[in-house]
């Protein structure tokens, strides 16, 4: 499944990193603790979080994540957007809570 497919199916907003929309997704990871993501997320996963600062992109890039989904209508900070465009890792957004969007993504993955 590609990032563009979850954007379409989960009606996600695309804030940045459009060039990375054809990245292949291997799964998802949910956490707001950066060291947890650093230690435990795996390559190709979509990271669901409420953190909006640019260190999120540093981690997404170091871990080769497929995309980041910001919950609760949160928007990325300016340098997060810049970093996302530089690395071609999309930052996506939803009005849903972490619980809801994680549930939908999980369902989509296990269809």
């Amino acid at each position: 499944m590609k990032v563009s497919e979850i954007v379409e199916k989960l009606k996600l907003k695309v804030y940045s990193g459009q060039k990375g929309l054809d990245r292949e997704i291997s799964g998802g990871y949910v956490s707001d603790l950066l060291s947890d993501v650093m230690g435990n997320a795996r390559e190709g996963e979509v990271w669901i979080t409420l953190q909006v600062h640019q260190n999120v992109m540093a981690i997404a890039s170091l871990k080769d994540l497929a995309a980041v989904i910001l919950v609760n209508n949160l928007e990325p900070l300016e340098n997060t957007v810049r970093h996302s465009n530089d690395e071609n890792i999309p930052v996506l957004g939803t009005s849903l809570s972490t619980f809801e969007i994680a549930g939908k993504l999980y369902q989509l993955f296990n269809q």
Binding site: D32, L33, L34, S35, D36, M38, G39, T49, Q51, H53, N55
Partner: peptide, 16 residues
């Protein structure tokens, strides 16, 4: 608040 400082840094370093 940034999501750091959860006391996972040094253990992560040890593990890796």
């Amino acid at each position: 608040e940034m999501g750091f400082g959860a006391g996972m840094g040094l253990p992560n370093m040890k593990k890796n």
